[in-house]
Structure formats: structure tokens, C-alpha cells
């Protein structure tokens, strides 16, 4: 064990190889950050001046009457939070029913879940567009949230079902003979066992909502962009002259919360990839 942990001579070629392979990535990230606070003459890769001008979007709208990045961040936050809450609360109840309750149509729902899980849901976008239009939810954040939730649910339910499946039946049998009704058993005895899955799903679907791009783009393409992802796309699509340094600055602004969340909740997120086997 000891021998394996300390990098000895035999490992150096390996490490050198990895460094060489990942160097381009590191350089890219480095420039991503450097470019947001410097000016670089066209054709050069060496910056010639320091500026905070690329961060001007934080101070106010980029163009007269354009959206403020803060209100977009707010929208994105609402979008991601609602998605996470609805996905998690529906998954956590639906998965219990699919895992434990002997209800009619259980096989059908389970089959449907697997099909939807594997199905490229984005191909449904035209049908979804028509339905939203019909319901009057087209071009609203509510509409996008509903669609996003629907697309995320198969994954969420599947994950939570995995966690429920690993809770021993005897716990519930003991609860019922102890005099608790099924709902109390679920709330007081089973839910605490799947709590790691719950937390992971909450974070995961929040991140998924935060980075969603296609759905707001297609389903809520109002004059003003609605979320950060579409705002970001707008910056390079907008003009004949695209401001890449501005684009990079906004990207960092957009990515920071994701990075923070990953760093804080790394361990919890790993639970999902464990498939709930250890609960």
C-alpha cells in the first residue's frame, strides 16, 4: 500500500503523460480567467493591459433597456430551485409507490420509467411546444419549469427507487406492527433511510436546472432572455462583432455557483452514482 501511494520513479512517466495530456485544458481555463481582466491586442496571446471593463455587465444592463444580469440570475435561481424542489418531492413519493406499494399499473409505470430514462426527450420538443402554447404557458418561466421537471422525473424516480429498494422490508413490517400507519412509517422510518439520496437528487436537479439551455431558448424566447444560459448565448450571437472577453466573464459568473455547489456537496453527489446501494 505504502509503496503505491508514494510516487516513485516508475510513476513519473505516467504523471508526465497525464500532465502533457491535460495541459491544454489547464491553459484554456487559465486564459478563461486571465482574459476577463485584461486586454489583448488582436493576433497576440500576451495581454497588454489590465481592465475590469469585461465585468461591466455586473453594474447594469449591457444595452439600453436590456436585462440586468442580476434579475436573470434571480430567474435562473427560481428556475433551478423550483425544478429541484418539484423533481425531488415528486420523485420521493412516486419512487416509494413504485418500490413498495402493490398498486395497479405498477409494471406499466416501471416499464415507462425505463423507456423514458433511455429516450432522447429533446425529440419531444415540438409536441411540448404545441401543448404549452395550447395551455397558454408558452414563453413563461412556469411553462419551462413544468417541462424541465417532466424531463428530469424519470431519472429522479429511478434514482430514488434504487434507494428505497435497499431499505429492508422488515423495517416497515416492524413499524406497522408497532402501530404506525403506512404514511407514518414512510415519514418517520423510511424517509430518513433514503435521506442521502434525497439530498443528492436535490442538488443534482438544481444543477441540471441551473445549466439548462435548450428548453428556455425554445420555449421562452421572449425579446428579453429569461435565464443566464440564454443571456450568455445572446452575447455571442447578438452582434456582428462578438465580445469574447465579455462572454468569458459572464461564463465565469454563471459557472461559479455550480463550482461552489460541487465543492461543498461532492460527497453527497457521489451517493447517486453509488446507485443507493449503501443508502
Amino acid at each position: 500500500m505504502q509503496e503505491q501511494r508514494a510516487p516513485n520513479a516508475r510513476h513519473w512517466p505516467l504523471i508526465a503523460g497525464l500532465v502533457a495530456l491535460s495541459a491544454p485544458l489547464v491553459v484554456m481555463y487559465l486564459y478563461q480567467v486571465i482574459d476577463t481582466v485584461t486586454t489583448t491586442p488582436p493576433g497576440s496571446i500576451i495581454p497588454d493591459g489590465v481592465t475590469l471593463g469585461h465585468w461591466r455587465f455586473l453594474a447594469g444592463p449591457l444595452s439600453e433597456g436590456g436585462p440586468s444580469v442580476w434579475s436573470l440570475a434571480g430567474n435562473t435561481l427560481v428556475f433551478a430551485t423550483c425544478t429541484a424542489l418539484v423533481v425531488t418531492s415528486v420523485s420521493v413519493t412516486a419512487a416509494y409507490a413504485l418500490s413498495r406499494l402493490n398498486m395497479p399499473g405498477r409494471g406499466f409505470f416501471l416499464g415507462g420509467l425505463i423507456v423514458l430514462h433511455a429516450f432522447p426527450t429533446i425529440t419531444l420538443i415540438v409536441a411540448v411546444f404545441l401543448i404549452l402554447q395550447y395551455m397558454g404557458l408558452y414563453d413563461t418561466l412556469t411553462g419551462v419549469i413544468l417541462v424541465k421537471v417532466a424531463f428530469e422525473l424519470p431519472f429522479g424516480i429511478w434514482i430514488m427507487k434504487g434507494f428505497y429498494d435497499s431499505v429492508p422490508w422488515e423495517i416497515e413490517m416492524a413499524g406497522v406492527t408497532d402501530g404506525a400507519d403506512r404514511f407514518t412509517v414512510w415519514r418517520l422510518l423510511v424517509l430518513p433511510q433514503v435521506q442521502p439520496g434525497l439530498a443528492a437528487l436535490l442538488i443534482f436537479s438544481f444543477l441540471s436546472g441551473w445549466s439548462e439551455f435548450i428548453l428556455p431558448l425554445v420555449l421562452a424566447p421572449a425579446n428579453a432572455p429569461q435565464v443566464l444560459a440564454t443571456y450568455l448565448a445572446g452575447i455571442i450571437a447578438d452582434d456582428r462583432f462578438a465580445d469574447f472577453s465579455l462572454f468569458k466573464a459572464v461564463s465565469i459568473f454563471y459557472a461559479l455557483p455550480v463550482l461552489a455547489i460541487y465543492m461543498i456537496f461532492q460527497k453527497k453527489l457521489m451517493n447517486i452514482y453509488g446507485g443507493g446501494t449503501k443508502g
Partner: peptide
């Protein structure tokens, strides 16, 4: 009931 695996509530 006492179960074979005890079925204590772990939390």
C-alpha cells in the same frame, strides 16, 4: 415481533 435481522430503526 422480533425479526431475525432485528429490524431496528437505524437513525
Amino acid at each position: 415481533i422480533v425479526f431475525q435481522n432485528y429490524a431496528l430503526y437505524p437513525h
